[in-house]
Each structure stands twice: as C-alpha cells, then as structure tokens.
Design a protein around this nucleic acid. Structure first.
Length: 272
DNA sequence: AGCCAGGGACTCC
DNA sequence: GGAGTCCATGGC
C-alpha cells in the first residue's frame, strides 16, 4: 500500500486495505469518536484524525507514530489473499476488507481489556474516558492515557465511580504488580512467555491476555475467543472458549489474529 | 423485566 | 484441569 508522509499527516489513495470504519469499529480500540467525514482517535499520548473524502484518506497526527500505529508497512492484501482460502473467512473478509490491526501500547491495552471483561462497549469507553480525563496529561484539546505512575494514584473508589464495577479491585492489583515490576511492558520474549506473565496479572485470563498480545504486542499468532467469536463459530458452550482459542490459533498460525478480527467484525455488524 | 456484555476469580472435586 | 458460581452495572 502506497502512502505519502508529510510533517503533520499521512496521505493515501482510497484502498481496500484501509477503511476507518472497519479499523475502529472492530472492537480493538475504545478511545475514538465518529466525526462528519472520519474519525477522531486517541491512543497513548497522541491524537489522530482520519478523514476519508473524494477517494483520499488523510491521517492527521504525528506521522512516525501513525505509520507504526496503523501498521502501514504490512501488506494486508497478501494477508487477505492467504486467509480467504479458508471458506469460513470469505464473507467476513469481504465484509471487513479494510480492517487493520492497530499497534498500541501494552499498558493501555492491558488496562482497557481488563475493563472490557464481561462488559459492554459503551460502558467500557465511558470508564476509559473518565480515567483519562482525571489521570491523563492535559494535552490542550484532549487527555493522554495515564502513565503507570499516574495509574498508581487511582484508588478503588475512583474505578467504581467510573463504572468499572467489580473489576475495580483487579485494576488496583494489576497496577500494583506492574509498579513493582514493569518488565513485561517492554518484553520482547516469545508469545508464550509474555502470555504467562500477563496471566499473572489480576483480571487477566486467557481471552484478555490474547487481546493484549494481539493489540499491545503485535502477536498475530493468537485467536482471542470471546462471545462474539463463539457465535461466529456456531458454538454456544462458553466453557469451550479456551479450546477454540488453541484450535483456531493452530489452524490459522501466524495469521490467527487477523482471522479473528474479520470474524469478530462480521459477526457483530452483519445484518441478520 | 430480564438477559447480555470482547470473562475472570474462586471454590469445589 | 474441568465444572459451577458469583461478580457490578449500563445497554438493549
């Protein structure tokens, strides 16, 4: 995919490999808002604006950050061509053709997906927004995601008030663990090793760990298996989630994470 | 009103 | 290690 890098933006022609709606509404990120002709996104300490009009996509923001964030160097046409050989992915890929997996900070991903457990997206977004507004750095027209140091100042009452529910104590405990040893946040170890460390955090089970690995560490060899993906597979027994996570990761190999995103987006947004 | 939400911890065995 | 139960609370 060709793109031009400027000082304050990146430009590309409209392409099958980039669709803002698909990218932001496939459940991988919670700090975004729909605008008139695009999206307004916050990630880490950055603000990004994506505009799509007249056949052109403009990504406003720090170009170096955005190039990595949108994973612009990865060839999604190639990934889709490979995955679409699996019949069950034909419709999902046609439907969510413009999905890209965003590269995000491990800390923000960990906190976000602990909040996401057994929760609904509007409420998840609301809790994270309250957190940033209170503990993030004021960047003028938005707030950054809080640093680990700032997160250490958040008490249980705040989390409850922000709508975290019973996850409040998980969040408190996880921040404490990370404050003592934050090495996992910058780990470059194998997917299995990092997963083991993530599972030691509070409120992080197999599904949250897989989401964090995929979105926060760019590990595409995992297949996060939530209720929507279970529906996509046609399985009702929730106790089998971890079985399918392993099964599908093995089936799709290093492309498992991409396959999961197409399935998730299709299942959530297709018309019955 | 009642089930569901991008599940996990805890407790049994 | 597998099965059951409980967990807060807004969305629909």
């Amino acid at each position: 995919m060709d793109y031009k890098v400027f000082e304050d933006r990146i430009e590309l022609e409209e392409t099958e490999d980039f669709c803002a709606k698909h990218i932001f509404e496939c459940g991988q990120i919670f700090r975004y808002k729909k605008t008139e002709n695009g999206y307004l996104i916050f990630s880490d300490n950055q603000k990004i604006i994506v505009e799509e009009k007249n056949g052109k996509v403009t990504i406003w923001g720090n170009p170096k950050f955005c190039q990595n964030f949108f994973d612009l160097k990865t060839d999604y046409s190639k990934i889709k061509a490979e995955l679409i050989k699996n019949k069950e992915l034909t419709m999902p890929i046609k439907f969510g053709y413009g999905i890209r997996i965003l590269k995000r900070s491990p800390l923000e991903t960990i906190i976000s997906f602990i909040i996401s457990a057994n929760n609904n997206i509007p409420r998840i977004k609301n809790t994270i927004e309250k957190l940033c507004n209170e503990y993030g750095e004021n960047k003028g027209d938005f707030f950054s995601f809080p640093t680990l140091k700032k997160l250490s100042l958040v008490d249980e009452k705040f989390w409850i008030n922000a709508g975290a529910g019973y996850r409040a104590k998980y969040l408190i405990d996880t921040v404490k663990i990370l404050a003592l040893d934050s090495s996992v946040l910058t780990s470059n170890e194998s997917t299995t090793e990092i997963k083991k460390k993530l599972l030691a955090l509070s409120g992080v089970g197999p599904k949250v760990a897989d989401c964090v690995l995929l979105f926060g560490y760019g590990r595409t060899d995992v297949f996060p298996t939530d209720t929507w993906v279970m529906k996509a597979i046609g399985e009702n027994d929730k106790s089998k989630a971890s079985f399918f996570a392993t099964e599908k990761a093995s089936q799709y190999g290093s492309l498992a994470g991409y396959a999961q995103q197409y399935l998730f987006f299709y299942e959530r947004n297709k018309k019955a």
